[in-house]
Design a protein around this nucleic acid. Structure first.
Lengths: 119, 119
DNA sequence: CTGTATCCAGTAGGATACTG
DNA sequence: CAGTATCCTACTGGATACAG
């Protein structure tokens, strides 16, 4: 750990940056829904869960701003906007999967392990 | 992420459970500090960053309750309490590292700046 | 349909003082 | 030293109404 250019501080802030991006309550559900394919705004509103329009918009804007989600507007009326994962968004599903695998292991184990992460 | 046997619901809830555990502002810094070795309460208070005692205690209690951190009390006076990572805690550093790697390579300029009051 | 504007409640977390 | 108790502020996100 000595002599490294990557400081602990960087390590912590970078990790925290990802977590800050993913921790808003609906970020992961939205990402996961989009991992199922392109969705329209109203479809997300319905499929993601009990999310408000304001929050859905905020979540999408945040993900879009960080380059994880692509927003496509169809100029025709009535308005039609489609959201999809960018390559960057797809690349995030890997470490996200690693996190899920870890959680799954602790949750179900092989039957003998105590449950640790009951939500 | 497609073609998996697990249900979407499981995937989302399990992932969200981990994120909920790690997203509190100081969870990762505390874990990371402990990854550097056993620390006493006062050492954490100083090393982790600008964290209040209340929040440090809350964070430690949460991590301890989920089995990631071990708490050891030395009955001698003055009180001396040592915290360390459990094997489960150590196992989490792997997916956490994966997340960091992703942030480091994909999320350029990921440094999070503390938000200030908007006038 | 796809948002934005406004109001509001619940909560995370800081400051401080006090306890064993 | 290692917390707990209390108070307080800021931010998140829901509900509703309005707009393009």
């Amino acid at each position: 750990m000595t002599g490294e250019d990557v400081t602990d501080y960087e390590m912590i802030t970078a990790t925290h940056a990802v977590l800050a991006l993913l921790s808003p309550r609906w970020a992961v559900p939205v990402l996961y829904t989009l991992a199922g394919g392109t969705r329209r705004y109203s479809e997300l509103l319905y499929e993601v869960g009990e999310i408000s329009k304001k929050t859905l918009t905020q979540t999408l804007r945040s993900l879009e701003h960080h380059g994880l989600v692509d927003r496509r507007v169809d100029p025709d009326l009535p308005a039609r906007v489609e959201y999809s994962l960018t390559p960057l968004g797809w690349s995030l599903t890997e470490p996200l999967m690693a996190l899920y695998e870890w959680a799954a292991t602790q949750l179900s184990g092989a039957g003998s392990r105590p449950r640790r992460l009951a939500a």
